[in-house]
Design a protein around this nucleic acid. Structure first.
Lengths: 200, 200
DNA sequence: GGGTGAAGCGGACTTGGGTCCGTTTAGTAC
DNA sequence: GTACTAAACGGACCCAAGTCCGCTTCACCC
């Protein structure tokens, strides 16, 4: 226990590891941000408040996350990693060991719920939030994989993107303000999925 | 020419007509905004600049348009009305007098181009821009109409929404940053449309 | 353990969106 | 023409995002 060679985990895809103080601040900031969001809602959390709560200067927040939207993306990524784990290695039908169609169905349902749950964060993250975050990449790749397993041919990459596009927070918000409830959205999405997979 | 009963056009759907000075300012502001956008790009147009250019106070801009995003939406609506006219009564295949499938194909292509053309405005308009604007309603309703003509059954409303979702600026931006070019997007979209219409 | 340089830090400062409220004006009724 | 009111106006003001730069700290190497 004296000098255990407990390396700082130089895992594969890491982006040239942070200095220890930087890493500590990142963690503290994420933690503070989450606490403040829980306390007063996403809208009312200011960058100053997050900085003060974490006991660092405001410059540090922007150095770490680039912008308010960036901070929100970081919070999202944190929240979504648990969900991703469920997809990759959780119990069926969302996880492996279920027929691909069942997985796709569960995936869509689950994705919809997650999106609505994190609606405020997603809106605050803006363009950076719903798109270009690692989250989207994961979603699209997984759907791509399932579609292939279901025998879909053609430009599967684009079909996967198209299949997930109607579950973006923007579209869902629009549908909801027009009085379309979640259950109907899910049904419509399953219909779409069936048509893409080719039920004939 | 003395006292022509040239009414202030109390057209049907008008929202309880504006006072004349208000209407004049709205027009001046839209005009100034468009000029400034053309001159320095959407990003660099500030609300103060628009107000100054139009010769009104800043408060007036916000009274008329609510927010920066609102102003951008107004600009978009102005720009899109011409396009809508083309769809409703322009020459085929976009306009009437073409088989529905040809119209749908032309519609998708044209919509994609329009979206990319107005990309900056759409991004600046944020959630209010791509969604909930009258523009979206028009697009979805038209697609709904075409799908019905093509014999699509089911929840056509949702299918229309789903079909147009991948042509939103956010999705397009993502695809483009990943090196997918416009032609491929169109092909993918046509494939999707074919699957929805049911090509078997 | 001391020197060195790059990375990180902090908080004053700038900028621009959005609000507020006292003043002005269009439209109407007499 | 005058009186009146609701709507519109304008610009000072407020607030929060984002920048800047001189100072500090970490990590690494003699």
């Amino acid at each position: 226990m004296t000098d255990l060679p407990l390396l700082p985990l130089p895992l594969a895809g890491e982006p040239a590891s942070e200095r220890s103080d930087a890493a500590r601040n990142r963690a503290a900031l994420l933690c503070s941000a989450q606490a403040l969001v829980a306390q007063c809602g996403v809208e009312d959390v200011t960058m100053d408040a997050v900085a003060a709560h974490a006991g660092v200067g405001k410059g540090t927040v922007f150095r770490r996350f680039g912008s308010r939207a960036g901070l929100m993306v970081a919070l999202l990524d944190q929240n979504e990693s648990h969900w991703q784990a469920q997809v990759i290695s959780g119990p069926p039908p969302l996880g492996p060991d279920a027929p691909p169609w069942d997985r796709l169905e569960a995936f869509g349902r689950s994705r919809l719920e997650t999106t609505i749950l994190h609606g405020d964060l997603l809106r605050a993250a803006g363009a950076a939030g719903s798109r270009s975050a690692p989250a989207v990449t994961f979603v699209v790749q997984h759907v791509q994989h399932l579609l292939r397993e279901l025998g879909v041919t053609g430009d599967v990459r684009l079909l996967a993107t198209a299949l997930m596009a109607p579950l973006e927070i923007g579209v869902l918000d629009e549908l909801r303000t027009k009085g379309i409830d979640t259950e109907r959205v899910i049904h419509g999405w399953l219909d779409l999925a069936r048509r893409i997979v080719g039920g004939c």
